[in-house]
Amino acid sequence: MSQTPLLEIHDLNKSYPVGRSGIFGKKMMQVLRDVSLTVQPGEVLGLVGESGSGKSTIGKAVLRLIPSQSGAMRFDGQDLNTLAPEALRALRKEMQIIFQDPYASLDPRKSIRAVLAEALDTHQLHLGPAREGRLRELMGLVGLNPSFLDRLPHEFSGGQRQRIGIARALAVEPRFIVCDEAVSALDVSIQAQVLNLLADLRAKTGISLLFISHDLSVVRYISDRVMVLYLGRVMEVGPADEIHFAPKHPYTAALISAEPSLHHDGRRIRLTGEIPSPLSPPSGCVFRSRCPYAQDACAQSVPPLRTVGAGHQTACLRDDIL
């Protein structure tokens, strides 16, 4: 893979105002805290964590669907925070998204032909006689019969709708796609079909993916590297197999322990309590209030990401627990 990242994010922060304004202004809920990541051309980076960890917020911020509070974001060398509206509109051809809900993400009044053509019209692609060939090609690319182009979304199953969503994302030939819980709403057997489809498309086109999921086993299957988030902070990042089989952070190990398996090695980590509110996160390491290995030092300062292997980093002070 190239050493020049396609996507670079440095110290991304995002907060939302909550409640009513008082004499000191609105209270802010911080959902991302100093998140940094890179995605290489042709790479799949998996984002995993519990609900509320900030995974989808990262994807939306990258695509400029929501503004970030602070931090640098660059795509192919272009500063995403300072792009003018016209330049951002042109760049959207290179950056697409596959939404979580295959039922809500398609307009029920539009045929599949109209759904796919809308993306092509927006960027003035495959105009005139070339349009029909491109629409049929997209349907074949995601394993659907081109004769289905004139059907409405309600005539398709959930898995088929998600394939249409993938075809829509691919229509403008992007280099990068955010997959926001793209298989979580599907049955397990259909999940496998869609994951295999994404893996095949990545092999054929060299596209880069930011694959967001709460399921670590799904993320491991499709990702080259995995980043683990908890309460808006990065806990661990590294090669997918290393993260799964040799985690270095207690939170990652707890996620793996929670997976149904016949082959756990006995080192199960059961978390107690609920994830803290982003309005009042714990001091120091945000995971310490649920960590069975927490020490007094964990409350004193935020542990930085440190290298524990080739391309493997963890935000934990201890080396003696896993």
Rank of each mutant, 00 (worst) to 15 (best):
D215T: 07
Y221M: 10
F245R: 15
L210V: 02
R225K: 09
L198W: 12
V226L: 14
L210T: 00
A253W: 05
L210C: 00
L210Q: 00
L229C: 09
L229N: 04
S277Q: 00
L255N: 13
T272L: 13
T252N: 09
L195A: 00
D241W: 11
L209C: 07
L271V: 09
K204Q: 15
G238K: 01
R268D: 01
H214V: 04
M235W: 02
D241H: 10
L195T: 05
F287P: 14
L231Y: 00
A253K: 15
I207W: 07
Y251S: 11
F287R: 12
N196L: 11
T252W: 12
T252L: 05
M235D: 04
R270K: 11
Y221K: 13
R267M: 10
G273V: 04
D265S: 11
G273P: 05
C285P: 14
S280R: 10
N196Q: 14
H244R: 15
M235P: 10
V226P: 12
E236P: 02
G284F: 00
H249S: 10
P278S: 02
E242W: 10
R202E: 02
H249W: 08
L216T: 08
L262G: 11
L209P: 13
I212R: 11
R267G: 12
I275A: 14
P247W: 01
L209M: 12
P278M: 03
S289E: 14
R220C: 06
T252G: 08
G284L: 01
A240Y: 04
V228A: 10
I222F: 12
G273L: 06
R233T: 12
S280K: 08
T252E: 03
V218C: 06
